[in-house]
Amino acid sequence: MTVSELAEQLNLRVFSGNEGLNHEITNGYTSDLLSDVMGHAEAGNAWITLQTHRNVMAISSLKDLSAVILVKGFEPEADMLAQSNEEGIPVLGTNDETFVISGKLYNLLNKQ
């Protein structure tokens, strides 16, 4: 499933990084601890988090993640937005809580 298909199916906002909307999503990773993501997320994952600063994009790029999903209506800070566009890694948003959006993503990816 691509990032844009995911955004459509889960009704996510697309804040930035449109260049990467055709990225394939392999799986999801949910965490707000950056070193946890650094150590354990896999390439192609969609990263679900409440962190809204640019270091999220640095890690997403280093780990070749497909997209970032911000929870609970959080919006990316300006520098995160800029780096998302620069790296071509989409930042998406939802009003759902972390548990709920993680469950939705899990179900969606395991339905295929």
């Binding site: 601890l33 150590g39 600063h53 270091n55």
Partner: peptide, 16 residues
């Protein structure tokens, strides 16, 4: 608060 400082950095370095 930024999500750093969870005490996972050095273990990550060692494992990698």
């Amino acid at each position: 608060e930024m999500g750093f400082g969870a005490g996972m950095g050095l273990p990550n370095i060692k494992n990698n």
